[in-house]
Design a protein around this nucleic acid. Structure first.
Length: 405
DNA sequence: TCTGGGGTCCTAGGACCC
DNA sequence: TCTGGGGTCCTAGGACCC
């Protein structure tokens, strides 16, 4: 037990069924009923309550396919409301930060926390305390896993959720026979092993975490990349992925969207793209950065077999967040990639090589930009669908009820 | 006329994550 | 009829240079 002292104790705190939990705070009628939250365009299911999971609703399932089933079972269905989730996330993360210094906000509903300074004998009590306090102050239930590194923390939180007796808090060092249990955990439950890699390993007879750990590093490296190797090392107990205490500057900012319907008209494509440029530049401004490059793309309806995707990266003449400047500079290339097909389902723009806007850049040769008129069009096939949005409560935080106190 | 290797940079595409 | 959006990182391959 003494050797444990030298190890890191890395925790993962994640919110259970986060979007559903947020909706339930303001729509209490959904508590106890199967509940789902839909993606943009009400396209597919991106969050499920436990009741929905128990009824067999899968993550990413197309909504139209299970709509009738959901009606029959009296589901509560919500279009996604990212303002609400973002606000709730801030509250939860701020609270967690008040308990621990070294925290990495990893996603909207998860953070890694370094608990290394907490004595072994107090670890579980501390974690339970955090779980209870987050629930008491925000109404959001969380699960916590802790282990010697991020990968094992994640795997441990899988236990915390799966096994009711852990009550949402689980330590790697308290799981009896962890090594043996690994032979009953499917490899794709591991953080860092996705669908494609799982398939590759399955093909060579490696299907469980235990088997993966015992696969030669040569094979792992051959079937994956350096990150696959790191994942294997972490499962063996080594520490490879650091906690990022400082939030890193974003490297890219994107604005992309699927259309409500297929779009065939170049004018409409142009209008959609221009709109995404405008909303993308708003994000640039919010982050106080300018873009040096822009990648534009158009693609077909993947699910209908139109698997084409054309993209082009454009070097912008000056670092900029001006939508008309950007529109003018991408226009020719955009027309070119649109000419390759006549039917599209999606397009977007990704800004790359971002620089802080307060750093003034002087270019030696100020080139003239040939401005292109922004498009105007009446018909908007590309606009998205949102039938189940609940707008309330997101604008006024003073009205936020303190539930579940 | 024929023949090379090594380096950088860029981009597209593919894997992963939530 | 109807299948998300926004990120990160890695790698292969082409262009170009010496």
């Amino acid at each position: 037990m003494g050797s444990k002292k030298s190890l890191k104790k890395i925790g993962i705190i994640d919110c259970n069924n986060f979007y559903v939990s947020c909706e339930r705070l303001f729509n209490p009628e959904s508590i106890g009923r199967p509940t789902v939250v839909l993606s943009n365009n009400d396209g597919c299911v991106i969050a499920r309550s436990q009741e929905a999971k128990d009824l067999g609703i899968k993550m990413g399932e197309p909504f139209f396919k299970s709509r009738d089933f959901m009606d029959q079972h009296k589901f509560c269905v919500y279009s996604s409301n990212y303002n609400l989730y973002g606000d709730m996330s801030d509250r939860v993360m701020t609270l967690i930060k008040s308990f621990a210094n070294d925290i990495e906000v990893y996603s909207i509903d998860e953070s890694f926390v370094d608990f290394s300074n907490i004595p072994d004998e107090h670890l579980l009590d501390t974690l339970r305390g955090i779980k209870n306090e987050v629930y008491r102050q925000t109404g959001i239930p969380v699960s916590i896993g802790v282990g010697p590194n991020k990968t094992l923390a994640k795997l441990t939180s899988y236990f915390a959720k799966k096994q009711p007796n852990y009550n949402g808090v689980c330590s790697y060092w308290d799981v009896p026979n962890f090594e043996n249990i690994c032979y009953s955990i499917p490899l794709d439950e591991v953080w860092g092993i996705g669908r494609k890699w799982y398939k590759k390993f399955k093909n060579i007879g490696v299907e469980t975490v235990g088997q993966f750990i015992n696969t030669s590093d040569y094979t792992v490296r051959k079937l994956t990349n350096v990150n696959g190797s790191k994942t294997q090392l972490e499962l063996k107990g080594l520490y490879c992925y650091q906690i990022q205490k400082q939030t890193k500057l974003k490297r890219n900012i994107a604005s992309t969207r699927s259309f409500g319907k297929d779009v065939t008209d170049f004018e409409q494509m142009g209008e959609a793209m221009y709109n995404y440029i405008v909303s993308g530049t708003k994000k640039l401004n919010q982050s106080s950065v300018l873009a040096n490059k822009a990648t534009i793309f158009v693609s077909g309806n993947y699910h209908k077999g139109d698997k084409y995707h054309y993209s082009k990266t454009i070097n912008l003449q000056n670092p900029t967040s001006d939508s008309d400047e950007i529109w003018s500079q991408i226009y020719d290339q955009f027309k070119m990639i649109c000419d390759k097909k006549e039917k599209f389902k999606k397009c977007g723009i990704i800004f790359n090589e971002l620089t802080p806007e307060n750093v003034i850049q002087c270019s030696l040769f100020e080139e003239e930009i040939n401005y292109v008129e922004p498009p105007v069009n009446e018909i908007k096939d590309w606009e998205m669908k949102q039938e189940y949005i609940t707008q309330k409560y997101t604008t006024s935080w003073a009205d936020l009820p303190k539930v579940f106190v």
